[in-house]
Write a protein that binds this DNA or RNA. Structure first.
Lengths: 170, 170
DNA sequence: GGCAACTCCGACCGCGTTGGTAGGATTGAG
DNA sequence: CTCAATCCTACCAACGCGGTCGGAGTTGCC
């Protein structure tokens, strides 16, 4: 499993806020409303939205009739930011560490007697695929998708026809 | 983190076998040799290679001078098969279940009052990216990459220039 | 002022998975 | 026979995930 429920719930929450944000006078939405609307545990949502706030993706107003709203327009919220805030990072393997100077990704066991870590090529490609999907999707896309149904699902998704990639018996 | 060490060790193991398989008279390689060569725990490797054998990706000969060898040529071993055997499946979220009749992926909470689960679009795109990277890479690619160094890393990988996607403080 | 509705914050906890280890049974070459 | 290898099952510590609880701070409204 790639993502946990943090990402799932967090994105659902943002979509809900994104719907509200298009109204003429967008009022802040309380977590209680969202929790009931999406059938999610309120206390858990609180911790999730805290991550989004720390990343400056949402803003909050406290007190009665308070709540949350988007810090930017849905078109300007890319999903790589969101997932980074919620899940911490998208790295395919634990051996992927960041060289904090250059920002380049590299592998722990590089020095394996001459030939570098052969698996690196694979993990780089996988990560590239994930990152591209994340960067190419905005919150506005998801909000629109929620309205119009399944339209746009095939845009760059290329659902594997021959390989089910289904959940096995395990 | 997307993959566990099962995938990491398993792929390393296959790469090692892939190197051997190109010799004129390919002898089976014992796990002990691989474990020492890659600095991996032998007992754990045994369990991992069992998964590969069950998926008919490797063959074994028992007894003295026994060991493992690839069941096919490295060019015919695609990484989606390998990861499926090792990790069980590649699904971005727990809510992705397989409709075992059609093989189509769908989501648990479809009926959210009219507008379908809006996050589905995102997870489909992500999964598509992963699956395409996995299907587009063969064991032969990894073996060749291990020899020639970093050549070929950019082939379709599109390393994100502006987004470090680095491991954060967490 | 006081209450109710919110956000905020830290501690706690059961559970399943991950990453190993231990120990032995079986098989085959020399 | 003996040694080297695969095979197989059980066991275990540590960790992260998903979630709860209780309380403290903030604000609108009567």
């Amino acid at each position: 499993m790639i993502f946990t429920t943090k990402a799932e719930y967090g994105v659902r929450l943002l979509v809900e806020l994104g719907r509200q944000s298009r109204q003429p006078r967008p009022q802040p939405v309380s977590l209680k409303v969202i929790a009931e609307s999406e059938s999610l545990p309120l206390a858990y949502l609180e911790r999730i939205v805290a991550l989004l706030k720390k990343a400056e993706l949402v803003e909050s107003t406290r007190g009665a009739h308070g709540g949350y709203r988007l810090a930017r327009a849905p078109e300007d919220i890319r999903m790589d930011e969101v997932v980074l805030a919620l899940e911490g990072a998208v790295a395919p393997m634990t051996c992927f560490v960041d060289d904090s100077d250059t920002g380049r990704v590299l592998c722990n066991h590089e020095e394996d007697k001459g030939h570098g870590c052969a698996t690196k090529l694979l993990w780089m490609r996988v990560q590239g695929g994930v990152v591209r999907a994340l960067q190419g999707t905005t919150l506005a896309d998801l909000v629109a998708f929620g309205e119009h149904g399944a339209a746009g699902l095939d845009g760059g998704t290329a659902r594997p026809e021959d390989a089910p990639i289904a959940v096995p018996s395990s």
